[in-house]
């Protein structure tokens, strides 16, 4: 794969993960009283925007590359979640999870080679 395609493949997973989290926060916030509509609306708008971006970038990748080569990039989503929780919340990452992160990284690396 080209460097551009690999970067887009990785960027797609950032958009997917952050978009999903924002929509989750928007939905959860609707259960809290008083409802902070500005926060709900902005989470919803940015989340939807990121997921749309993911969708069109994904279709762009699918045009040029095999599905069986692109799809494993989705394995980066759980990696981003784990590393995000580690960096932003100081969550401990188990050795087992680190092993998974490494395997996914190596696996995507194998697929990304020309």
């Amino acid at each position: 794969m080209t460097l551009l395609a690999i970067s887009i493949g990785i960027l797609c997973q950032f958009f997917l993960v952050i978009g999903n989290l924002l929509l989750k926060h928007a939905m959860n916030a609707t259960h809290h009283v008083p409802r902070r509509w500005l926060i709900i609306a902005s989470n919803f708008a940015i989340g939807t925007g990121l997921l749309s971006l993911w969708f069109f970038l994904w279709l762009g990748l699918l045009r040029s590359w095999d599905l069986s080569q692109i799809f494993p990039f989705e394995g980066l989503s759980p990696v981003l979640l784990v590393i995000g929780a580690w960096i932003f919340l100081g969550e401990r990452v188990s050795p087992r999870a680190w092993a998974g992160v490494v395997l996914i990284g190596v696996g995507v690396g194998l697929l990304a080679q020309p």
Binding site: P78, A97, A99, L103, V108
Partner: peptide
């Protein structure tokens, strides 16, 4: 590559 990603996602699922 596909196999490594599969095993990796299983290992990382709980976290």
């Amino acid at each position: 590559g596909i196999l490594l990603v599969l095993i990796g996602t299983l290992l990382v699922a709980a976290s």
